[in-house]
């Protein structure tokens, strides 16, 4: 498999098909060139935002992304990046440290305001009713997909996804080959996808008919 690396990365929306010149980019940032910093932001902002959101949630995301970029730029300007070609790895290291730091801050803040005996409510994450409804809908669709497969297949998926048993253990105990195991997962995914499409097309048709009726009445 051709694993992507810094050398063969081609940015999707750079406006040109040339590879990123990491050395040139680092040199421009070290020289304080604003265009260099803009390019750094253009190359990495989506990925940094994605990573931080996935690890920490959507709260105060803009600030966290901004803080991360400030740290990266300052570190580059201080000469902490020894090899320009390792810029992706360097950014990843900074982002992971930021995640650890934000978690530490959150835990500390929670400890300071928490008082279990007096009953202070400390939610785990913020509530998002819309997202909750979407999650429940997906889970319901998945439940339908799973109830349509055999108990044994369900047990295999339970061991892998819920009990987090390694594939090798499951295959050994359930007497499956690696291929059979992968096939089962693919079938479950395909079944879920089919049910989802069916439901989507039903709800699209329903919306279409409702709109059409409304137009006809007027």
């Amino acid at each position: 498999m051709n694993e992507p690396t810094a050398e063969n990365y081609e940015p999707e929306n750079s406006g040109h098909s040339q590879r990123v010149d990491w050395t040139g980019l680092v040199n421009r940032i070290q020289a304080g060139d604003p265009e260099g910093m803009e390019e750094l932001y253009r190359v990495f902002s989506r990925g940094v935002r994605f990573y931080l959101c996935r690890q920490l949630g959507p709260q105060e995301l803009d600030d966290k992304v901004h803080d991360t970029f400030v740290i990266v730029v300052q570190a580059i300007q201080r000469g902490e990046l020894r090899e320009a070609e390792r810029l992706m790895g360097f950014v990843r290291t900074v982002v992971r440290r930021q995640v650890a730091a934000f978690i530490d801050q959150a835990v500390q803040a929670r400890r300071e305001r928490q008082d279990v005996e007096s009953g202070a409510h400390v939610p785990d994450r913020r509530e998002n009713p819309e997202q909750y409804a979407i999650e429940r809908q997906r889970a319901e669709l998945m439940r339908q997909a799973l109830e349509g497969i055999s108990r044994r297949d369900r047990e295999i998926l339970t061991r892998f996804y819920l009990l987090e048993q390694p594939q090798e253990q499951i295959c050994a105990e359930m007497r499956l080959s690696e291929t059979q195991f992968r096939l089962l997962k693919s079938r479950a995914k395909a079944r879920f996808g089919q049910l989802g499409k069916k439901r989507l097309s039903r709800s699209s048709l329903m919306s279409f008919f409702l709109r059409t009726n409304t137009v006809l009445e007027h």
Binding site: E135, R138, E140, L146, R154, L162, F192
Partner: peptide, 9 residues
């Protein structure tokens, strides 16, 4: 979704 559904079942 898989985890939620498997837990429910």
């Amino acid at each position: 979704a898989m985890k939620l559904a498997l837990r429910d079942i």
